[in-house]
Design a protein around this nucleic acid. Structure first.
Lengths: 137, 137
DNA sequence: CTTGCTGCAAAACTTTTGCAGTTAG
DNA sequence: CTAACTGCAAAAGTTTTGCAGCAAG
């Protein structure tokens, strides 16, 4: 899919920087920090200032285009495209590798919670432990 | 339970500040930030410096006495006593109220993941949405 | 045109680090 | 006594804010 041409999200002004940001997020398998995005933008020619990236990410989040998360003990927030399909991550406590988990154990649980005076808009699940390469013997 | 008298965790030197911190964490229903803890300490007489609180929390986490988490879109890390029973939280996107969830939908799921080259040490689930008071009409 | 975005600088926050003096065991 | 902890100051790192100029619709 060629971002930057079609499928532009509604209510968001289209600029060079924003096209670049969405394209980077779209091509990434894992969530990226604002700084990551900035670096990748520089590499692909059209750069942007960190403050712009933060401001734009905030806008994307507000519009529901992007999801903001905090990965375990990592001090920076990370952002990923809202693909409207479930993705959760297992994080290695040693090397910080991020492993995507495809099926989500929450599907059955959510409706149950919805009965109880809380309107569920989303959820965020994080599993931490050790990956194959870091598992101590 | 009277913290600060018995049940002191092993391998941790006992000081006035640390007793106060553990007592505050023990009496709190919800996770607290380092700053929260500092404020509560001042109110209860014996104060401590923020840096000390951070250093001590780090120690507690390393010893498994305390769990560190990041709550959705809240920029500060929060800490809670490791009570060895599952607690997850629903966070109101509007008023940031934190609601505890008692049963955990992950119990059945974890063993399945453990087969796949990842040693699970823990997990962290967060549900976000709107609480009863903030649910728009 | 006119509104809103961007670059840039600088502030605001949270968290970490270094060091000297104090305290617990 | 000795190692470890605390207060304090200051640095480090991430995120936010203000403002003037620029770009998109």
């Amino acid at each position: 899919m060629k971002e930057g041409q079609n499928n532009w999200p509604a209510g968001i002004k289209r600029t060079r920087q924003r096209e670049s940001m969405l394209s980077i997020l779209n091509n990434s398998e894992k969530p990226l920090s604002a700084a990551d995005i900035c670096t990748k933008m520089e590499r692909s020619g059209g750069s942007a200032w960190l403050s712009t990236v933060y401001r734009t990410l905030e806008l994307f989040v507000k519009k529901g285009v992007v999801i903001k998360t905090n990965v375990m003990n990592h001090e920076m927030a990370v952002y990923e495209l809202n693909r409207f399909k479930h993705k959760h991550y297992a994080v290695c406590m040693n090397c910080r590798k991020i492993i995507a988990i495809d099926n989500c154990p929450m599907e059955k649980f959510i409706p149950q919670l919805a009965d109880e005076d809380f309107r569920v808009m989303g959820h965020n699940l994080e599993i931490f432990g050790f990956c194959k390469d870091c598992d101590p013997p």
